[in-house]
Design a protein around this nucleic acid. Sequence first.
DNA 1: TATAATACCGTGTGGTAAAATAGGAAGAAG
DNA 2: CTTCTTCCTATTTTACCACACGGTATTATA
Lengths: 139, 139
Amino acid sequence: MKISTKGRYGLTIMIELARKYGEGPISLKQIARDNDLSEHYLEQLIAPLRNASLVKSVRGAYGGYMLVNEPWNITAGDVIRVLEGPITPVEGIEDEEPAKQALWLRIRDAVKDVLDTTTLEDLKNHSGDQTQDEFMFYI
Amino acid sequence: MKISTKGRYGLTIMIELARKYGEGPISLKQIARDNDLSEHYLEQLIAPLRNASLVKSVRGAYGGYMLVNEPWNITAGDVIRVLEGPITPVEGIEDEEPAKQALWLRIRDAVKDVLDTTTLEDLKNHSGDQTQDEFMFYI
DNA sequence: TATAATACCGTGTGGTAAAATAGGAAGAAG
DNA sequence: CTTCTTCCTATTTTACCACACGGTATTATA
């Protein structure tokens, strides 16, 4: 029940591009440096994002990547779906018996609701205003 | 972003035991046969459930497993947590920057809410009353 | 024209986890 | 004492993750 680094780093890339929306192409090298990530690995993540037309590229020196749409018109769900596949807690949900099927559907819809209502604009500069106690992280 | 067969099969076991709650020990062989699963594999899944005191065992011929508590006092979350670990969409959530952290927390809480409010009693005989169209399974 | 910066592309690789499979030991009922 | 079942410890197979590597193509700038 985990989102891998594909989705997480992919979201990192997209948030960085959202922060610099309108400033021309941003290189992966810069994003990799600023977030302490492997540039080579980010290359592999941004390829599907480009294929899905979430970002466009400018090749050559001083090239880089840009968002195709406005940050408020791209959701976290758009990004996660491209890099992690369909949002669903189980494969072959339709083969499950009704009881479990209903459970998986409720989980899926709950996650979908969060991901599809959160835009890059929401994520791009979050003040962190909610006082987060340590215990919040435990279950 | 998937629940593995550990959690799924574990839930299957627990639902079967809930359905036969009060009828004495149920063998894994029977559960494996009824659900077309590997008995050997189920053995490995029920071990942690026993260690967590969710089920108790009776050894020997005509032995098997029983729920320790009533089906309405055991939630899907209890089972999933034992077999899949803590419910969280990412590891090291506290290291994330505030924007993403808040997103992961909202997803976690949404999933938690579903899992912790669904009991084995809810799952044990679900009529499948909701007319489920095919398209419901796609995203 | 030359050089540097960048995107683009395929492949390799070590590690880890999932999903079993195999083969028994030990306890209980008949 | 035979059969049934839990209990325990490997081993195997498969897939995916998270990169690393080495190159080619494209473009801006000096």
